[in-house]
Amino acid sequence: MIEMIKAIVLGIVQGITEWLPISSTGHMILVNELMPLTVLADVAANKEFVDMFMVVIQFGSILAVLLLYFHKLNPFSPRKNAYEKRSTIDLWLKVIVAVVPAGIIGVLFDDLIDAYFYNPITVAAMLIVYGVAFLVIENRHRRPSVTSFDKMSYKTALAIGVFQVLALIPGTSRSGATILGAVLLGCSRGIAAEFSFFLAVPVMFGASLLKLIKMKIAFSLATASVLLVGMIVAFIVSVFAIRFLMGYIRKHDFKAFGVYRIVLGVLVLAYFFLIK
């Protein structure tokens, strides 16, 4: 029962932090550090399961995007005219182009990234660095030139994809890196956030599939139940988190998230250097 409660907490954290630019992976690592998920008795097998859980639970968050943006992402919707259908296909092609850089780097260096960067100190450092970046960029924010996906070029989409590569380092935030990159490239906050959501679908699905393929332990009722609960909770919470973010950025900028990242990063460093 206690492990189910931990899975629920992790699902809540995943659902909130995946879409806000504050690093879901970073928060998941930190929460698991404070309340470790222990589903399997064997230490090595449990570590492998937890590593997989941290990634595959994101599938619940993907479903939230598909639910909320089903019409916008569906090129075959009978409610769309021919122009709208072509625009939707064009949007998907831009997403695919933007996915390529992180997809290549992720597949080639996934194990090295896991081995060297999945630790609280890296997370804290990246929280602070990109928190400062948000404040700097927002202070220099100019009138956006890309206010719709039709105005986004394939070159811009690819450049946003390059920014997404930065998010392979835990603590960076996939949404944070892509939103920052998109804003720097002239996208409005709304377009930057939505494109970040859409990029998450193939990226997170691919990452989840890769982790499942690499997992060497067999699923039991206990492991499957914990994973399923985490995914369901992440899905429900993600729906509310996405709606909150889109409503928030209509009236505010991203400075609050930058301040939050810096404060959290400092607290994490203080915990691991002064307390633990």
Rank of each mutant, 00 (worst) to 15 (best):
D110Y: 13
A270N: 06
L63A: 12
F235I: 04
S24N: 06
N46G: 05
F49N: 03
T122Q: 10
A115Y: 11
A167R: 02
S145H: 03
Y118M: 12
S175M: 06
S61C: 05
R143M: 12
V132K: 04
L274N: 08
I113D: 09
A182W: 01
Y118E: 13
H252A: 13
P202V: 03
G265H: 07
I12T: 11
H27T: 07
R243K: 15
F219I: 06
Q164C: 02
F70Y: 12
E48D: 15
G176L: 08
F134Y: 10
I262C: 12
D150Q: 11
T223A: 04
I179N: 08
H71G: 14
P120I: 09
L158F: 07
N32I: 03
I217W: 10
L166V: 02
R79Y: 14
L210A: 14
L135I: 12
N46R: 05
I160K: 01
K47R: 15
Y248V: 11
L20S: 04
L274P: 09
G190E: 14
I22T: 08
L68D: 04
I191P: 07
I2N: 13
I29G: 02
M204R: 08
G106E: 10
L184E: 02
Y271E: 06
P21D: 10
P120S: 13
G15D: 11
S175V: 06
L228V: 14
I160P: 01
L199C: 11
A182V: 00
K155E: 00
W92S: 01
K47Y: 10
G171E: 05
H27S: 07
M1N: 09
A115V: 08
K255M: 09
I57S: 11
F76M: 13
A241C: 05
G106V: 11
G265E: 06
E33H: 14
G186C: 07
L221N: 11
Y83L: 14
A167C: 04
G161E: 00
K85I: 05
K85P: 06
I128P: 05
A82F: 11
Y271F: 14
V9G: 04
Y116C: 07
L180A: 07
M231T: 01
Y116R: 13
G181F: 01
I275F: 15
E3A: 02
